[in-house]
């Protein structure tokens, strides 16, 4: 910048940003600390800002045993359920979107436009606005308390199809012609040329969709009744008992940390892909 800056002007941005980071991180810091104290210390409202010595016990009990007083499933099972659900949703969404975008872009057939619009309009029907009728469909199909019921209704997505359609449009026509000359059929072109080219897009989308799947709340809440089908995000809610004398907050906080860890790690480790995915899905 053209102006010369004084000491204050140089330090101010850092001060503001450090304060911002501190405020953003504080709730998570408290959760980390909360998981290291005895429940009695927390229940008294006397929890200090420094870690205590009960961390191992909290995490061990959360993962392996589960909070005893509410006799719930151990968090280990919940983590596995969450992971399976998030993977199925992310991979399923990417797979069916790749196929349908391929059909819409590379073929001419009757009802092509209609099919595209049909997929496009689903953008306007989030689960939240059609919960009970969707629940009824899932129940009629016998999908309650199954992985299929948990994931299938969340798998169709206009966003991913639109994204791949947009990307396929930028793939040069010469590649199709070249592979036709080589005598390759459409599926060979799809697997040998298109998929390798889409790798980065798929990875960026995977990051966003995995987080989306992992963090689902309303749908799993309705569709699962059995404790062993619970995801961690649902499980943590059920650990909080209304009269707070019974809630074992150190276990709740250990569970919160475990529930945050996988998606947060993905964002931090794959930051570039994450930012790319976020920007692209909003186009």
């Amino acid at each position: 910048m053209v102006e010369r800056k004084g000491a204050l002007a140089r330090i101010l941005p850092h001060l503001v940003l450090l304060t911002g980071v501190a405020i953003v991180a504080f709730p998570v810091y408290l959760a980390l600390i909360g998981a290291t104290h005895e429940s009695s210390v927390i229940a008294n409202g006397q929890m200090p800002l420094t870690p205590g010595g009960a961390a191992l016990d909290s995490y061990y009990r959360a993962i392996v045993i589960g909070p005893s007083r509410t006799t719930r499933e151990p968090v280990g099972t919940m983590l596995l359920n969450s992971f399976t659900m998030a993977m199925l949703i992310a991979v399923g969404k990417i797979a069916i979107s790749l196929l349908s975008a391929f059909a819409v872009v590379y073929f001419r057939f009757p009802f092509r436009k209609a099919a595209f619009w049909m997929i496009f309009i689903t953008l306007m029907l989030p689960v939240e606005v059609r919960i009970y009728p969707t629940y009824k469909v899932a129940a009629d199909l016998g999908l309650l308390d199954t992985m299929a019921g948990l994931t299938l209704p969340l798998i169709a997505s206009a966003t991913a199809t639109l994204l791949f359609r947009q990307f396929f449009m930028t793939v040069p026509d010469e590649l199709v012609e070249a592979s036709k000359i080589d005598g390759a059929g459409p599926m060979k072109f799809f697997f040998d040329t298109l998929l390798p080219l889409s790798r980065t897009n798929m990875a960026a989308l995977f990051v966003i969709l995995f987080i989306y799947g992992w963090n689902q709340y309303l749908w799993p809440l309705l569709i699962t009744t059995r404790d062993d089908m619970q995801t961690i995000v649902i499980g943590i809610k059920k650990m909080i008992v209304t009269s707070d004398a019974i809630t074992e907050w150190q276990i709740v906080m250990a569970t919160a940390v475990l529930a945050m860890l996988p998606p947060v790690l993905i964002v931090i480790v794959m930051q570039k892909l994450f930012v790319r995915g976020l920007v692209e899905t909003e186009k």
Partner: peptide, 20 residues
């Protein structure tokens, strides 16, 4: 340091703030 809360589930965010 600022982008990771995006990955926290809304329900878990609720639990963290209730704790505070």
């Amino acid at each position: 340091f600022l982008i990771w809360p995006y990955a926290v589930a809304p329900a878990v965010a609720g639990v963290l703030w209730i704790f505070m």
